[in-house]
Nucleic acid binder design. Sequence first.
DNA 1: GCCAACGTTGGC
DNA 2: GCCAACGTTGGC
Length: 148
Amino acid sequence: MAKQYWLFKTEPSTWSWEDQVAKGETGEEWDGVRNYQARNFMRDMAVGDLGFFYLSQRDKAVVGIIEVVAEAHPDSTTEDHRWECVDIRAIAKLPKPVPLDRIKADPRLSEMVLVKNSRLSVQPVTEEEWRIVCDMGGLDIESLQRRG
DNA sequence: GCCAACGTTGGC
DNA sequence: GCCAACGTTGGC
């Protein structure tokens, strides 16, 4: 299967980019999701998939790139078997964060889930959207792909 | 801090 | 199984 791209949304006061980076190579489970759509997207993820790390509230910007390091498994923060999550690790900070208003201002990104359904906390991102946002963030995609 | 949008819950 | 009520999210 071709690599898929995603977007993970969090509030900086709850789980910041620095928190994610601090978890290092082994990463951390993306727990706490209690929404079926978001859970289903996590079930679709494969190890090696890449995602944007998006901060809501004050930042409202894509700030970094993460990689899925474990497929969906039970969410350790609940006994409720309905909820699952993947593990992710930080792999690169965007040289320039890409704010929501820039994304909204770009007609090529008008179909992004972030624009159309801002409340969904885990979202799919198309390959084209991935390239455009990485480019806006000053990130060289080739360097990501050359990584180990 | 407000409020619209959305998802979930629970009574019927 | 419908739908009103409610809670939460997140942009503004």
